[in-house]
């Protein structure tokens, strides 16, 4: 990942930023941090105010018509040909890989595929397009990493996020024992199967605690909502933070 392979696409001067609905409501600072990381690289970031949600909640809950309505709305909000950077593996996966499924039998499928081909998850964009080099200015700290399932499997971008963290010299990354296991969020799953979801979240939190890390980081605020909520409920003082916010904090 730190190789000298050429960037995925030529460095653009402008990108769209898709903030995601969870970040919008609960973690706006993480969203801003992602924006600043891009701006710092000399990229002009466009934030269409018309954007809302990628549609995944309805898509995964049995309401594809509603998901398509919301998806088409994003297509309109991100109409120009700029790359779209998304600070979430899960939403990026929805936009990039699931939209073509959702629209497979729709007349606007080609437009959808063009839209999907412009999607990049934030760490992927930073490593594979901008080839960012970070300089650590923070105190030594031990952190652990939670891979969201969609970041890990659907988008396969976890190596990029870790590449960035490993550029931070005074950050020690301690892996979880069950890093590949879901934290139990699953969007509406967390409220439709609350008992199972809670059991999974508790196990994840136990795993986080056994690392002795001072923070847990992730690409995905859905998972962080679940993990932070469970940590808080158990009154455990380990912040759960979006990686962009963490990186920005240490490199300013």
């Amino acid at each position: 990942m730190t190789d000298a392979s050429p960037p995925l696409i030529p460095r653009p001067s402008k990108v769209y930023y898709f903030g995601t609905c969870v970040i919008d409501a609960c973690f706006p600072q993480a969203g801003l941090a992602g924006i600043e990381l891009l701006q710092r690289e000399g990229i002009q970031v466009i934030f269409p105010q018309a954007q809302s949600c990628c549609g995944q909640p309805a898509y995964n809950s049995g309401f594809p018509d509603e998901a398509r309505r919301v998806a088409r709305h994003q297509l309109k909000a991100f109409a120009k040909d700029y790359p779209i950077v998304v600070p979430s593996g899960s939403c990026a996966g929805m936009l990039k890989h699931q939209y073509p499924h959702l629209f497979a039998h729709e007349p606007d499928i080609e437009e959808v595929c063009r839209f999907s081909s412009r999607i990049y998850e934030l760490s992927e964009f930073m490593v594979k397009v901008l080839q960012v080099r970070l300089e650590d200015r923070g105190e030594p700290v031990k952190v652990t990493w939670h891979s969201s399932c969609h970041a890990l499997r659907e988008m396969a971008i976890v190596p990029y996020a870790k590449t960035l963290l490993r550029q931070l010299e005074r950050v020690e990354l301690v892996e979880l024992q069950n890093e590949q296991e879901c934290c139990g969020f699953g969007g509406t799953f967390s409220v439709k199967q609350p008992a199972i979801s809670a059991a999974m979240a508790h196990d994840k939190v136990n795993d986080i605690m056994q690392t002795g890390a001072a923070r847990v980081l992730s690409t995905d605020c859905g998972c962080l909502l679940n993990i932070a909520g469970t940590l808080g409920y158990r009154q455990l003082n380990v912040p759960a933070q979006h990686f962009a916010e963490f990186i920005l904090e240490r490199t300013q």
Partner: peptide, 8 residues
């Protein structure tokens, strides 16, 4: 509904 769509 007994799935988080984790994809494992």
């Amino acid at each position: 509904s007994a799935s988080t769509f984790c994809g494992a």
